[in-house]
Design a protein around this nucleic acid. Structure first.
Length: 280
DNA sequence: ACGGCGCAAAACATTACCTCA
DNA sequence: ATTGAGGTAATGTTTTGCGCC
């Protein structure tokens, strides 16, 4: 998504807008097979904007914006509560949850029944025993193992699920639910970060747009004051990056790429998409 | 090749339990 | 002791992908 360096200053805002859409469309309109929904496309869009698909292998929701942002994202702590508590696997099963119950063996159901009955002592024992929803608290070890597993793959196939459940002394359904919730939390966190990032982008681009508008006004004023000796075909100095540009679109005449400019020369540009200004 | 159907799995929205300040 | 907020396990619903007919 290189910005159009030859774009006129005055149309910067438009160019920027197009730059955001033209390249990203390629990715958003051809989502990956895993891209099931709007939210996935949202991430695809953000990734496309950032021009870097992923920071690293791992959860598919990891978003890489730039190397900096990549690190930032990876550092964000996903605070999964790891409070230690006795393991109690109790949950209620609605009569409508037929599909889910299918995967739960009769043995598991029996275990659940026993635990459910012993889990709650209150006045309405029968009522509570059947309808209450005692909440499992994963212990530290279980949380850690689930986290480790999640790092390797954010979804589990049935075999992996079973194995992990057995390893953790949980039901497969509980492992499945944990992964579902974990994915949801990851996505939420990511969305929040994307939101922040895009806000900053917006601010930065607005500032730059204002600055370039001002620069344009200055150039126009300059042109009015020196109308005769500023032919467009002549070699001119780009006021933004102080780079010489020549007419005829001869790229070979100027071997400096935008990225080879010194930071000082382009320091007034902060483009969050790692590209220099549309003006240069 | 195409569309309809059923199923499984994942995503998503919401509820409810639990802890802690 | 109470309460409200936040975290998260669990549940219900919707969406999506895939195989089969």
């Amino acid at each position: 998504m290189d910005l159009d360096h030859d774009a006129s200053i005055s149309s910067l805002h438009l160019v920027l807008g197009l730059a955001l859409t033209s390249e990203t469309q390629k990715e958003t309109l051809t989502p990956s097979p895993q891209s099931n929904n709007v939210v996935d496309d949202h991430f695809a869009l953000i990734r496309a904007i950032s021009k870097k698909p992923y920071c690293e292998d791992g959860p598919s929701l990891t978003l890489a914006l730039s190397s900096e942002n990549c690190n930032l994202i990876n550092q964000v702590p996903l605070d999964l509560s790891t409070q230690t508590s006795p393991l109690s696997t109790v949950s209620s099963f609605s009569s409508e949850g037929v599909k889910r119950e299918r995967e739960i063996s009769s043995e598991e159901l029996e275990t659940t029944k026993i635990e459910r009955v012993s889990s709650r002592v209150s006045g309405d024992e029968d009522e509570d025993a059947t309808n209450s929803r005692k909440k499992l608290r994963l212990n530290k070890e279980q949380s850690n193992m689930l986290e480790e597993s999640f790092k390797q793959h954010s979804t589990l196939n049935p075999k992996q699920k079973q194995a992990l459940a057995k390893q953790l002394n949980l039901r497969a359904r509980q492992v499945e639910v944990w992964f579902q919730n974990r994915r949801a939390r990851t996505k939420l966190k990511q969305t929040e970060m994307d939101c922040e990032f895009l806000k900053k982008c917006c601010e930065t681009l607005t500032e730059e747009n204002m600055r370039l508008q001002k620069e344009l006004q200055e150039l126009k004023a300059l042109k009015l004051s020196q109308p005769l000796y500023m032919p467009m075909s002549a070699t001119t100095m780009c006021p933004s990056c102080e780079r010489l540009s020549s007419s005829g679109g001869g790229g070979a005449s100027n071997k400096r790429t935008p990225f080879s400019m010194s930071m000082a020369a382009k320091s007034h540009f902060y483009n969050p998409f790692t590209n220099p200004s549309a003006a240069c």
